[in-house]
Design a protein around this nucleic acid. Structure first.
Lengths: 348, 348
DNA sequence: CTGTTAGCGCATTCAA
DNA sequence: TTGAATGCGCTAACAG
């Protein structure tokens, strides 16, 4: 095992290729870049051979330094362990690779100080564009970055940042959920959400929910934020009469609710219906499965990158907001008919 | 909205700072770097002011070009949607940030061509070290990279690659699982694993399992690979007499098995016990919860980075293999006593 | 302690 | 078509 302290020195460079091929660096540069058309076939061939024999790889750092194009995209994620973030990131990454970009992922763990550090780091790497999926405190840094490069928000708005936004059509999603619950015969709906820490999508879902409930005389609705008392609150909710259901505003809420319901000894999902935003792979495993509104995360990620690319290519259109629609995935947790039957059977 | 085609040009550079502070670039460089001790307080202060006023950020690309140190670590992941990979990545990322490194994540989606592309890209960015959690086909590229930088394998060995390896102590883990099942009174154990595509950890678990069964006269064991016929195979297994249990070799297998058992109408987990490697957040939700062997993913990720850092600092010790022990997390899926009771109650 | 100088690897003028 | 020269932003000798 050798030391790597100065490993870079040993790498084959453009000069090596030029010497090996008996041409100038400029020609090699042209071969590497988009000016290959300017080269005679003979020279191009010699260069190609030299490159292959030496295993030459152009140094992106140097290219970036010269041209100002690093082919690097940064992504700031609030919580890398949230399946939604991962799914979107997967979409972004795929799009990046397809267009010759690489992705620098920065997870903030919902921590402002980490967000600050990462933003500083990203700037220092001359990334060409930034995808933001955090609360976006440190507005000053973000604004500074935005002056230097295109920026696109994912899922959550950051108010003073006037930039493209890609995410879910929250009002539509909430309408789909509430409407589905109503159709299935539920009359009392409890929206369970993570704490409203300023995340715009959470707020939108909450507001839309209130509006949706107000529009539907047949329904009663309430809102609950996740906290230590979740189980108690659910206990109270379960004690109510009539067909009732939970609407979990994201995967985290769905996990917490399912856990709490289980702890309460609730028979899933006969005592209470459940519909959740986001579709996680374990939803089918609980009770008769959890009905979900799946977000098109792949498309969201790809679109985010696409926005960046458009801006990088000089698009100066006004900022856009891309709202995607979720897909209703029907499972057992919202079929009270069958559930009621089952309950009666048990009670007999 | 302005165009960003040549945005980089506008960034404030070291020269700007030097002029603004009335000093030389070298002094600014010393201030930025680790040579701040060489500067007089007066000059240091002037530089500091200039930096703050101008909002100067050193350009890592340029620094990297000069020093051969990019402060960039690459990570090659086989499947970014596997919770294990995410968890390890989270550990790596945390360690990176703590030491001033940034992480370039490359997901191969288990695809060899993508692995090739990513390896090429990583090389071109002059990353300082590489963490590999893939099958490692494209040995030529990997070997080439290994000549230029330290490399550490995570979870899976890549045979001809003589490098540090961080992962689970698979024999110990399997022993813990089998022993636990035996103690709980199970007699017939079925190991369920993903297809053995060459992943070393899968093979090790499989081999260890066979050895473990051979050592224990009280136990009978068999092995099953995930495929379309899983449900049929489990059906056959369930038909056997006596207390039996599944041992899922990872989270993917656990998900597939739980799904199949559910589809078979099996009463979880009274008809059959279940223990799973990896601890996913939904394990508590199924039946009385799924007993798990949790991997210390955070530690694994941190150690991987640590190996890299040691090598980068000149450590030339022989390659090490760091094996971590899992932690047994007891849940309802391996408590046949209670289960048997419940089953009898139901049958009455 | 501080400034001057000379590149790191590459792209891009400008001549030839 | 090709090559020589210049500089991207920064660090690392070397002098002073």
């Amino acid at each position: 095992m050798t030391s790597f302290s100065a490993a870079q020195r040993s790498r084959v460079t453009m000069l090596d290729v030029a010497l090996h091929a008996g041409v100038s660096k400029a020609s090699v540069s042209r071969f590497i870049g988009d000016d290959r058309a300017l080269l005679s076939d003979a020279i191009a061939l010699r260069i190609e051979h030299a490159i292959n024999e030496l295993g030459y790889r152009p140094n992106q750092m140097a290219r970036g330094l010269k041209r100002g194009r690093t082919r690097l995209i940064g992504m700031l994620v609030a919580d890398i362990r949230n399946p939604y973030s991962i799914a979107v990131m997967h979409g972004v990454e795929t799009a990046c690779r397809q267009h010759g970009y690489s992705l620098v992922v920065c997870n903030t763990d919902r921590d402002d100080e980490q967000e600050r550090q990462h933003l500083a780091a990203l700037r220092s790497y001359n990334i060409e564009g930034l995808i933001v999926n955090t609360l976006g405190h440190h507005l000053d840094q973000l604004l500074e970055l935005q002056r230097e490069m295109p920026l696109v928000l994912v899922d959550r708005k950051v108010e003073p940042l006037h930039s493209d936004l890609v995410g879910l059509d929250n009002p539509a999603a909430v309408r789909m959920a509430v409407e589905h619950l109503e159709q299935q015969g539920y009359r009392d709906v409890l929206l369970v959400s993570e704490a409203t820490d300023g995340t715009s999508s959470r707020l939108e879902r909450l507001e839309s929910f209130k509006a949706e409930i107000a529009r539907r005389p047949a329904l009663t609705g309430a809102v609950l934020e996740l906290d230590g008392a979740l189980q108690n609150h659910l206990h109270t909710f379960l004690a109510k009469a009539g067909p009732k259901a939970l609407f979990c505003a994201n995967g985290i809420a769905a996990l917490a609710c399912t856990q709490a319901l289980k702890a309460l000894g609730c028979h899933l999902f006969e005592d209470v219906g459940l519909i959740a935003l986001d579709d996680l792979d374990w939803y089918p495993l609980v009770g008769n499965g959890i009905t979900a509104l799946a977000q098109p995360t792949q498309a969201i990620g790809a679109s985010a990158f696409d926005c960046l690319l458009k801006r990088l290519r000089g698009d100066t259109e006004p900022t856009r907001t891309l709202d995607f629609l979720p897909q209703l995935i029907l499972r057992g947790s919202t079929t009270p008919c069958r559930s009621e039957l089952a309950r009666e059977k048990r009670q007999r």
